[in-house]
Nucleic acid binder design. Structure first.
Lengths: 122, 122
DNA sequence: CAGTATCCTAAGGGATACTG
DNA sequence: CAGTATCCCTTAGGATACTG
């Protein structure tokens, strides 16, 4: 058996992950679905900048990739609820880290900008 | 002070992170630079599918966002080395998790496909 | 070696309108 | 309510060629 401790990351795996998560709003959707199922309209309210069409598309793709569940209630008016699957939940820590990093990055960028300004007004 | 334990993720932070890491090859580049600095040509060999122009662009953007360092050695022929900054290193755990997840996802997808086939030949 | 300079294509989304 | 159906447009990234 190959017991090489070397960490081998197959390019394919990053690429695969990116292909699934690459949509502009997918991570955000998953984040909103992390704890509760939400109706389509609730997601829309949370993300007003996203067009219905696009939101639907992204949800369909996430569903296809097994990250969200879609439950249709045969009522009038129709009700559709979206939830996160276990596979999506496995992604949450990643999301949180990404977010923390984004926060750090923001701080850093601001600090840099401030420093630059100070230098320019010198 | 606001001691609300509630986890607030500002949309902006995911979006910010995505805007920095969104390039098609950026995560992969960062991965290759995780341990050692590499020359431009070495990166090219590692990622033959990426055109020079694109590789250059992605590197420039990463540099601009403070994720990679670019060192030019005034030699003939020119030598340029790229390295990862501490900010990039803070991202490595995320990368690894993403990768692991990609691997899981692959397995799952294969399992699903196999199951489907079995059912169809029934 | 490590780039720029052009040109071009594909596709992910955006905007608006219509419907079961 | 929760979608489809169109049309359109930007832009990231690909292909090829040229240079300090």
């Amino acid at each position: 058996m190959n017991s090489k401790p070397e960490k081998i990351i197959f390019k394919g795996h990053i690429r695969l992950a990116l292909s699934v998560l690459g949509g502009k709003w997918k991570l955000e959707i998953l984040y909103y679905l992390r704890q509760a199922t939400l109706r389509f309209s609730e997601l829309q309210e949370l993300m007003p900048e996203v067009r219905q069409k696009v939101l639907t598309e992204q949800l369909r793709e996430l569903e296809h990739d097994g990250l969200v569940t879609r439950t249709v209630y045969a009522e009038v008016p129709p009700r559709v609820e979206y939830g996160a699957t276990p596979y999506a939940h496995a992604l949450l820590p990643v999301l949180e880290m990404l977010c923390d990093w984004g926060q750090e990055h923001e701080k850093r960028t601001e600090a840099l900008a401030a420093a630059k300004e100070a230098q320019e007004s010198r």
